[in-house]
Design a protein around this nucleic acid. Structure first.
Length: 504
RNA sequence: GGUCCCAUCGUCUAGUGGUUAGGACGCUGGCCUCUCACGCCGGAAACCGGGGUUCAAGUCCCCGUGGGACUACCA
């Protein structure tokens, strides 16, 4: 049977990078096995709904290259794929559970429950609505059928809770962790159906997964504690449960705990794929896309955070990831996000990118600096400097001297290299270069070296000063490549300007 | 507090009873070189602790310890 997997976010804000990884693993698993990838929107919490979140999620996956076979945005024969549009479906299933005696009505108000919790807390106990306490509460287990009937028909608010078995060992078979066992008496009678007429996640996800014929539930480890409830729900319905795989969490880079929204901008890296502006507060959260990351790099980095193919290969395309992926190789423990490694991945992908494509990204930056230049020349420059950049937006810093004269000269270099006779030497080299007709960079190099040798000068000292006057700093590709690019007349001017302005 | 999960270099990890405990990021020494970067060669750096099981334990078991998640009419 071909697997059917789903990624099921709730539209409460931008998609967290941990969620992206969960979706990625689902996708890799589906594609590897010729299965189906589904996007389902879990919007059963009407309070937390955030406009724009759904569109954001879809756009993020488009950017990342994670494609869905079925879902809110693409349709499919198991729709609708948005839980708020499936509202009518859930009621009949929860009724079925009540009929079977696996669920019951509960009329306790939020205040009463809160009071119980407070009481328990003051006695250092824990209040839980479960096997042990449900007989002291106000529900269809303690009330007579007539009272229940009367309350419901009078419109009293109620919820429907799952009735756990009293004395059973419940087993969850997890593909990553193996067998997880818990005693049913320890589980609380979770609300399945809220008083607003909406199901909770627990009910909706089981009903939908069943109806959508989901074969594998691959989700974050934060769901592990409620997995026993889910297997109990499948049992109660008499349905075959899907296979479960609970993914290790993505942790903060420093210290401990789950990577959260706040960590990113505090520590200087994005926690979201795309930039997000909160519609209520206008608060901005940075995104990988806007920070200059390539989607391939983000995917590659995320794939390796909690999984690896067991080889030493690190750079992998989506297709390679798909071929190599297996759930067995997912690690059990949480992975700390590593910003340095993320940058390294981006650097790798930037080097792999065709130069003309990278040059194309440079064009708008150049026009921001009022530089008018042919695309061919930009490609030449990018070719020369690309190996030292980690992000496309660093291109200007590493190549501005190709387009504009240096506006200052590195003090450190002046201090270390500029001597009393430097101005004279540079003038002589300048005229030597000007005598070359036509100009040839190899000959220029040889002539310059010859000059240095015959005058018994220090190569490093002269060359760095020459570079300083042309580039403004001790950086960049081969100096004669730069001279060749700029042309001898521009270079001569730069040498003159440097001689005039640099004093020791 | 309760329940569950987890534990190899600083970080991501390989390792499925016998290894000089491997790789990558980062750090670092050198080479290349006019400089920066790339590249190449090298280095420092880890099995949480204690008990078992076994001829042999990073690897299996137990107990600690540490970390994490969950503990809502949120997902």
């Amino acid at each position: 049977m071909k697997p059917r997997v789903r990624f099921a976010p709730s539209p409460t804000g931008p998609l967290h990078i941990g969620g992206v990884r969960t979706a990625l693993y689902n996708y890799l698993f589906a594609k590897k096995n010729g299965g189906t990838m589904i996007l389902r929107i879990e919007d059963t919490d009407q309070q937390r709904f955030v406009p724009g979140a759904e569109a954001y999620i879809i756009e993020a996956f488009q950017w990342l290259g994670i494609e869905f076979d079925e879902g809110v945005h693409v349709g499919g024969k198991f729709g609708p794929y948005k839980q708020s549009e499936r509202k009518h479906i859930y009621k009949q299933y929860v009724d079925l559970l009540i009929e079977k005696g696996n669920a019951y009505f509960a009329f306790d108000t939020a205040e009463e429950l809160e009071k119980k919790r407070k009481e328990a807390e003051s006695e250092k106990r824990n209040f839980q609505y479960d096997v042990h306490t449900r007989h002291q509460m106000c529900n269809s287990l303690t009330l007579s059928p007539e009272e229940v009937e009367q309350k419901i028909s009078s419109g009293a608010p109620y919820v429907i809770r799952f009735k756990h078995q009293e004395d059973q060992e419940i087993e969850v078979n997890d593909l990553i962790r193996g067998k997880v066992t818990i005693h049913s008496g320890l589980l609380d009678d979770k609300v399945l159906f809220k008083s607003d007429g909406m199901p909770t996640y627990h009910l909706a996800n089981i009903v939908d997964d069943h109806l959508m014929e989901i074969t594998h539930v691959i989700r974050g480890e934060e769901w592990l504690p409620s997995a026993p409830l889910h297997v109990e729900l499948y049992r109660a319905f008499g349905w075959q449960a899907p296979q479960f795989a609970h993914l290790p969490l993505l942790l903060k880079p420093e210290g401990n705990g789950k990577l959260s929204k706040r960590d990113g901008d505090r520590l200087g890296f994005p926690v979201f794929p795309l930039r997000w502006e909160d519609p209520q507060t206008s608060e901005i959260s940075s995104g990988y896309r806007e920070s200059g990351y390539l989607p391939e790099a983000v995917v590659n980095m995320l794939a390796l955070l909690g999984w690896n193919p067991g080889t030493t290969q690190e750079i992998m395309t989506m297709n390679e990831l798909i071929q190599l992926f297996s759930i067995e190789k997912i690690s059990k423990s949480g992975a700390k996000f590593d910003l340095e490694k993320a940058k390294w991945f981006n650097h790798q992908y930037l080097q792999l990118m065709p130069t003309d494509e990278l040059a194309k990204q440079f064009l708008p930056i150049l026009s921001d600096h009022n530089i008018q230049i042919s695309t061919e020349k930009v490609i030449k420059v990018v070719e020369m400097v690309k190996d030292r950049i980690y992000f496309a937006n660093e291109l200007w810093d590493h190549s501005s001297y190709f387009f504009t004269r240096p506006d200052h000269y590195d003090e450190q270099v002046i201090k270390k290299r500029w001597k009393e006779d430097t101005a004279v030497r540079l003038s002589e080299i300048k005229s030597l270069l000007n005598d070359l007709k036509p100009f040839d960079k190899t000959i220029a190099h040889d002539k310059t070296m010859e000059y240095i040798q015959t005058h018994e000068l220090n190569t490093g000292q002269i060359m760095n000063c020459l570079r300083l006057s042309i580039v403004g700093a001790a950086k960049g590709p081969d100096l004669f490549d730069i001279i060749d690019f700029l042309g001898i007349s521009e270079v001569s001017k730069r040498i003159d300007i440097a001689i005039q302005n640099i004093h020791i």
